[in-house]
């Protein structure tokens, strides 16, 4: 259990997927302008990433490895993820309409979120077993959601202050992200 706790802390704080590993930065800057969208996106990513981490692991170990097709990993994974996202969207729409209302518009965006494919590849490269892979995917997604919500909280304040014209929009967003990343690098000694 201690091992999982360590993996959890490492994935959320020390090697934060957004701020330290740089995966999933497009939605990070795109949807972090308000708190509502940030929490919606965060939840959608936690849900899809955990599922995708599990399924891609199974695909890799039970389909690609036995058939000796590991060089097709990239194509196989992206197809699995795209199908999964579509499938999740349909299932949620049928079974849980309120959840669909909340997550609906973020789900299609997740296909091209490199955090999902990135974590799937890290799971394989690091040689995790199935349970660890699921745990790592979940923890990474939590780290993603945490950073996204923190960022949204800060960007909401920007709406009220005057910033130099050249820095408006994405530029100040990037610099804020840099400062949050700097704060997160304080966790480096933790694990």
């Amino acid at each position: 259990m201690g091992e999982f706790l360590l993996l959890m802390i490492s994935a959320i704080l020390v090697n934060n997927i957004l701020l330290i590993r740089f995966l999933g930065n497009c939605p990070f800057l795109g949807v972090s302008k308000s708190m509502d969208t940030a929490t919606g996106m965060g939840m959608a990513v936690i849900f899809v990433l955990t599922l995708a981490g599990m399924i891609t692991w199974l695909v890799h170990h039970y389909i690609l490895v036995p058939l000796d097709l590991t060089y097709l990993r990239t194509i196989a994974f992206i197809l699995v993820i795209a199908t999964l996202v579509q499938f999740v969207e349909m299932v949620i729409q049928k079974t849980a309409p309120p959840l669909y209302e909340a997550l609906g518009i973020y789900l299609p965006l997740i296909t091209t979120n490199c955090a999902v494919l990135g974590v799937a590849i890290i799971n394989i490269d690091e040689g995790y077993d199935l349970i660890t892979a699921i745990f790592f995917s979940f923890a990474s997604a939590c780290g993603f959601a945490l950073a996204l919500v923190l960022m949204a909280g800060m960007r909401e304040r920007f709406a009220l202050v005057e910033i130099p014209k050249a820095f408006e929009g994405t530029a100040i967003g990037l610099i804020t992200a840099g400062l949050i990343a700097l704060a997160f690098s304080g966790f480096i000694g933790l694990v």
């Binding site: 701020l19 330290i20 740089f22 130099p164 014209k165 050249a166 820095f167 408006e168 994405t170 530029a171 100040i172 967003g173 990037l174 610099i175 992200a177 840099g178 400062l179 990343a181 700097l182 690098s185």
Partner: peptide, 22 residues
């Protein structure tokens, strides 16, 4: 060279380009 530096360097470059366009 660290991750925070990447964000800040890109942010400043972007601001610089905005300035030129202005």
């Amino acid at each position: 060279l660290k991750p925070p530096g990447a964000f800040i360097a890109l942010g400043i470059l972007l601001a610089f380009m905005n300035l030129i366009s202005q």
